[in-house]
Nucleic acid binder design. Sequence first.
DNA 1: ATCCATGATTAGCC
DNA 2: GGCTAATCATGGAT
Length: 348
Amino acid sequence: MDDQTRMLASMAGLGGLSQADVSDPDSVRKQQSLGQPPQDIGDILQQIMAITDESLDEAQARKHALNCHRMKPALFSVLCEIKEKTGKSIRGVQEEDPPDPQIMRLDNMLLAEGVSGPEKGGGSAAAAAAAAAAGGSPNDGSIEHSDYRAKLAQIRQIYHSELEKYEQACSEFTNHVMNLLREQSRTRPISPKEIERMVAIIHRKFSSIQMQLKQSTCEAVMILRSRFLDARRKRRNFNKQATEVLNEYFYSHLSNPYPSEEAKEELAKKCAITVSQVSNWFGNKRIRYKKNIGKFQEEANLYAVKTAVDAANVSAQASQANSPATPNSGKVVGYRKPVPNFQGPGIR
DNA sequence: ATCCATGATTAGCC
DNA sequence: GGCTAATCATGGAT
């Protein structure tokens, strides 16, 4: 075996610094290449025991000699090239793929929720928006709101600390593998490109772990949102005055209890609730009235009387303001007598 | 604990 | 898109 062939063998991963080098390599190689059963463990142990400082030194010296050989760089690159060509199957898998749409979705959501955004406490805007969407009145639920923010901040904190941990672990592991490969590239044909690819594989693995983290964070945020912002969970009865205003309108428009968009806006303003709450209220009222007119009879009479009295007051004031000679002729707008037969004919 | 009232949501209709 | 009817979920009285 001349120097070059020995080196080729050693670089192709057959040699290096194995126990075969330091004791009797040929017997082991021959046995294995001939498909014979591996030699006894006793024999191997014998060989290990036979390793001395001297033989180690000799092996190191030989390795050093190989590394310093003038042909080494050229041969190394040739071997790398061969390996590159034969390793097509691996390459196909690792080609750059476009950014995962799912991870983009998760990123967008976390950003929107203020979890992954740059500024601290970024959830407030999202929380406010969500609260507004839920249709709550402007000044209620401030306690729950701050509670929501606190919980969101907690999620955010956990998310960031976990992310940091993953990133640290990733870079540590990457460094470790890179060092290992660099070290091995002295004795095996490992090109920098291959190391790069390995690093990419590691990053891919870690990013899939990151995706799981993002996914579970998203789930936590969704649960939090539904817990705090589901309007049904924090239902509050409208105040007495608001209910009165709505009932007044309902019973004084019993023949057609369908307020126009403008009327709804007006009522919403008066009651300090949203237009959709007004719509909900009328929807519920109509159906419940229709289902049990008898039950609402008393209420209907009450509001009819109330409306009549109000109208009388208004007209009395008006007649006082005008001339005393013209009484309330035809001025009783919105008056509705206490009808014994409330059919609500207008309800579809 | 139970029941009723009530605001919100949902599916289906027009 | 607005409405009805059914239903859910909670508040409050008992």
